[in-house]
Nucleic acid binder design. Structure first.
Length: 613
DNA sequence: GCCGTTTTCGGCCCGACTGTTTTCAGTCG
């Protein structure tokens, strides 16, 4: 396995997984090996999930912040980043065939099987090891190895071929919409008592692999029959007693699980995850003498918990397990508050829940205005024009119950003559002033204000793409990066801070610039940007656009800790996109945001005080 | 090797599935 100084998180994680595999094979005799392997795997998971580069943390002397990295691991990483290698790891890895490590990527093959396959089949070249394995499998060579058979040979073939196929992930808004159609269909059946999304979809992770759904019903057979009869499917993959899977024409797999209403709570809890949340929850319960599973809670003999708390619960004497109809009673029985699914990532929510200090998360209903809207009023803008009129977007805002809006068409192309730019912006201001006047008086019931803004490019050097005197036409504006996404952290940080210089540059739009599945965002010293925003009253946007969802949840969490104010906006380019606000809200919730952290939850009067215009 | 609301020592999540197994090992989520 290659090591070098500039290792990314993914590479470090891969290295640690390799070390875990090596220990699994070499340390058979030592009783502690099992846990050492787990420790390395946990550290790898933790590093892979971290949005901050571990190398940067190391430079700042903050390696200890990463969960799962203790004194030994920190010393090894220190050696790795300093010298480009870890002698201890090299010694361990060099004594094993290099080819086995590539096989670890194949589902169903772990350390032991990878080692055995490579040894028995004499695969020596590390590069292309899985292709070689595939060819040998197709020749029927694997079934001859002790511990393998025809079945496992076939599985290995499927798995290797599948590696190159099954990588597709779906964006949250898309998966949610598909799932909701199916949930709606299921709920129409009178035998369905409850139907819920599970897994990453329920936790509102920004992209999801497959869609899992659970149903509470006393008649699983009937529900499965009904589910597999869903019209908009391309095939039924599997249909059993309690579970079934269908495939949709777009390639999305929908897995269904049916359970009786009495035991539905533990099931919902278990399959909502995350894995890390569940592991931490079970470890906590274990210390109190309780064992948790998808079936309920079982008491260990040494348990000191008062079982009186459980009196109201269903006790299944045969299975010796307490069963739960809903999640709330499950968590409550552990002495905890119910934890919103968005928080279940083992990021401190368990501790907060025990202390009764869970945040009161922001909700869609709290939002009082949309601050990023593209109408079709301006032509020849630097990027996409909106599809609909200001009027139609204002009508939609009324329907959504908003009290104010900010129109933020892209700035006019900068190479136009300055007088021309001034002209169109003057016309827009006059139009909005006029419209507001008539609407406020006519409505009678509620004041609704339309603010005049723009979304202005921050150019590579940090200058904004607008003539200085044009700012006078605007109430306040969004500034955003739309180009030059590479570039050093230092340069990009300076660029952002300069872009926010003007007092009316109030909001930093889609701050990282990422497009999920397309490109990474810009590299920025977020700590510095957060401090700047806090001191200078700038707001960071959580953009609800389906493949942006930007700020990402983890940065939301960090920003809030510093005390930075955020806004949630849709970046709508058409009227029917304004309902996408819920996805921005879900990002905020995953970042532990409360109503008070989000500026556009303020009513009109408080908002104008906050924006100071 | 990590970690602390019983612990700085002594623990370490839980169950399903699969295969080659006559009682368990490996892998996964």
């Amino acid at each position: 396995m290659r090591m070098h100084k500039e290792m990314t998180n993914a590479e470090v994680a891969r290295l640690l997984r390799g070390v875990a595999a090596a220990y699994e094979i070499k340390g058979k005799d030592s009783p502690n090996t099992r846990f050492r392997v787990i420790a390395y795997e946990r550290a790898a998971d933790s590093i892979e999930r971290s949005t901050v580069e571990v190398k940067d943390l190391w430079e700042d002397g903050k390696l200890g912040q990463v969960p799962g990295i203790g004194t030994s691991m920190a010393e090894y990483l220190d050696e790795l980043f300093k010298t480009g290698k870890v002698r201890h790891f090299e010694k361990l890895l060099d004594s094993l065939p290099e080819a086995m490590f590539e096989l670890l990527d194949i589902p169903g093959i772990g350390a032991k099987r990878a080692y055995k396959l490579v040894k028995e089949l004499g695969i020596t070249k590390a590069h292309g090891a899985s292709e070689k394995l595939l060819r040998l499998a197709e020749k029927g060579r694997i079934r001859t190895i002790e511990g393998f058979g025809e079945q496992s040979e076939k599985e290995i073939i499927d798995a290797i071929q599948g590696v190159y196929r099954k990588t597709k992930r779906f964006l949250l808004p898309f998966a949610t919409e598909v799932a909701e159609n199916i949930l709606e269909y299921l709920r129409k059946n009178p035998r369905v008592k409850r139907a819920d999304p599970l897994g990453s979809l329920r936790r509102c992770v920004s992209s999801v692999g497959d869609v899992d759904i659970s149903v509470a019903s006393d008649d699983p057979e009937e529900v499965i029959k009904y589910f597999t009869a869903y019209k908009n499917k391309s095939e039924v993959i599997e249909s059993g007693e309690h579970t079934a899977s269908i495939l949709l024409p777009n390639g999305m797999q929908i897995d269904l699980m049916v359970q009786p209403p009495d035991t539905y709570g533990a099931l919902l809890q278990h399959f909502t995850g995350s894995k890390e949340h569940n592991v931490a929850l079970r470890e906590y319960a274990l210390k109190k003498g309780m064992s948790l599973s998808e079936y309920g809670i079982r008491f260990l003999q040494k348990s000191k918990v008062q079982k009186s708390k459980f009196k109201s619960q269903n006790y299944n004497a045969k299975l010796k397990i307490y069963q739960f109809a809903d999640e709330k009673s499950f968590y409550n029985s552990l002495g905890m508050e119910w934890i919103p699914p968005e928080l279940r990532e083992n990021q401190g929510e368990i501790e907060a829940s025990i202390e009764g200090e869970l945040p009161s998360l922001v909700e869609v209903e709290d939002i009082k205005g949309d601050l990023h809207l593209h109408s079709n009023f301006l032509k020849d803008t630097s990027h996409d024009e909106g599809a609909n009129s200001i009027e139609s977007m204002v009508e939609e805002a009324d329907r959504l119950g908003y009290e104010y809006l900010l129109f933020t068409e892209h700035n006019p192309k900068i190479d136009e003559q300055e007088e021309k730019i001034m002209d169109v912006l003057r016309r827009k201001k006059e139009y909005i002033d006029k419209t507001n006047y008539s609407r406020e008086n006519r409505s009678g019931k509620r004041v609704r204000k339309v603010f005049n803004g723009l979304e202005i490019d921050i150019r590579p050097d940090g200058e904004v793409a607008l003539p200085d005197r044009a700012w006078d036409f605007l109430d306040f504006a969004v500034v955003s990066v739309h180009s030059s996404f590479r570039g050093s952290r230092d340069k990009q940080t300076k660029r952002i801070l300069r872009g926010l210089e003007h007092p009316k540059a109030k909001i930093l739009g889609h701050p990282t610039g990422r497009r999920i599945g397309e490109r990474e965002g810009i590299e920025v010293d977020w700590g510095e940007v957060f401090e700047f925003c806090k001191t200078n009253d700038k707001w960071l946007e959580i953009n609800s656009w389906w493949d942006r969802l930007d700020l990402p949840d983890i940065l939301v969490c960090q920003a809030i800790k510093v005390g930075v104010k955020l806004v949630i906006s849709t970046d709508s380019h058409a009227t029917d996109q304004m309902v996408l606000m819920r996805y921005g809200v879900s990002v905020a919730r995953r970042g532990w945001a409360e109503k008070g952290d989000i500026v556009n939850t303020l009513g009109y009067n408080d908002f104008t005080k906050e924006v100071r215009i």
